[in-house]
Write a protein that binds this DNA or RNA. Sequence first.
DNA 1: AACAATACGGAGAGTGTCTCCGTTTAGCAA
DNA 2: TTGCTAAACGGAGACACTCTCCGTATTGTT
Lengths: 182, 182
Amino acid sequence: MRADAKRNRDRIVEVAREVFREHGYDASLDEIAKRAGVGAGTLYRHFPTRDALLDAIMQSWVDRVNEATEKALAFEGEDRELLIGWFETYASLISLHKGGPAKITSAMGNPDSPIVSKCQVLTAASQRVIDRLEADGALRADVDAVQVCQLVGGVATVADNADQPVSAVRPLLEVVADGMLR
Amino acid sequence: MRADAKRNRDRIVEVAREVFREHGYDASLDEIAKRAGVGAGTLYRHFPTRDALLDAIMQSWVDRVNEATEKALAFEGEDRELLIGWFETYASLISLHKGGPAKITSAMGNPDSPIVSKCQVLTAASQRVIDRLEADGALRADVDAVQVCQLVGGVATVADNADQPVSAVRPLLEVVADGMLR
DNA sequence: AACAATACGGAGAGTGTCTCCGTTTAGCAA
DNA sequence: TTGCTAAACGGAGACACTCTCCGTATTGTT
C-alpha cells in the first residue's frame, strides 16, 4: 500500500470513530470524508460499505475486549456476581456508539456479516466465562455462548434505544443471569 | 373531516401497512404516497411523521393483542408453559414488520413516543399475565411489567435482526422465564 | 349557484449515498 | 535527477429520500 493511501486510510478511521460516537452509526459518510480532508471517492475506495468502515474502527477495540475478559476471569467471589459483572462489561463493550448494540448483536448470528470476526472475539470471550462457570458446576444446563451474547446484546439494545446507560438495565441482566444459573 | 380526506387517509394507512410489511419500517414514504395515489403533501398532512403513520397502522392491531391476552390467561397448565407461551405471543405481536420489535421496544420506556398508547396496551397485557402468575406465587420477586416487555422485546429484536422466526429464539425466552420464576 | 373552508398534489429545496473518470502523486528504474 | 507508470485522489453529478410550500381543486353549506 502506498504511503499516501495508508495515511488517508488511517485518518479516515480516526475521524470515523469520532463521528460515529458523536452522531451514531447513521452519521453521514460524506461528512466523515470531508472532516478527514479526503474526497468521497477515497473513502468509498477504502471502505466500500459502512460496515467495512465499522470493522476497521473496531480493530483496536479487540484488545479492550480481551483485557476485560481477563479481568472478569480473575474475579474472586460469587458466581452470580461474576456472571452479572461480565454481562455489564459485555454490554458496555458493544455500546460503542448509538446503534452499536443492535448492529453487533444482529451481526452475531450472520456469518456473512463484514464484522463477523469481531463478533467471534466476543463470543470467544463469553465462552471462556461460561466455561469457568460450568467448571464450577454453577450453570443450569448446556448454555450456548452465541445465544447468551444475543440475549445480553438484546438487553444492551434496549438501553441504547432508550438513551440510558448500561447500569439502567442491570435488573434485566440479573433476570438473565438467574435464568442461567443453577 | 371531509369525505375525500377520510377516503385518502384510510387508503394511505392500508397501503402503508402493506408496504411496511414488504420493505420494513424504513420503506420510502413517497413510495407509499405514490402507491396510494396521493401526493406527498397529502401523506405528510395526515401523518406528519413516520411514527404517526405507524400509530395509525397499529390501531387495528390493538384488538389482536387483547384477544391474545385472553387466550393466554385462559391457559390451563404449568406456570412455566404459560409464561413462555405468552412471551412467544408477545414477540410475534411486536414483529409487525422488519424493524418492528426494535421500534416498539425502544418506545416502551419513552413517554414522548407517538406510539406510547400502543405500548401501554402491551404492558397492560403483560401485567395481567404477571398478576396471574403472582397470584399463584410462581414469581421469584417483584417483577416490573415494563422491564419484562423490554427484555422479551430485546429477544424479539434479535430474531428480527437475524431474519428468523420467533420460534428460533425460544431457548432465549426460556432463559428469561427461568430467571423470573421461583 | 355561489362561496368559504378544507384538502389536494407535485415541484423543488435540502440532505445523503455512491460512482465515474480526469488529474495528481508516489515510488522505482535508468 | 529525471522520467515513467501504476496507484490513488477527489469532487462533480446521478439518484434516492424527506418534507414544505402554495397554486389549484373539491366539498358541503347557505
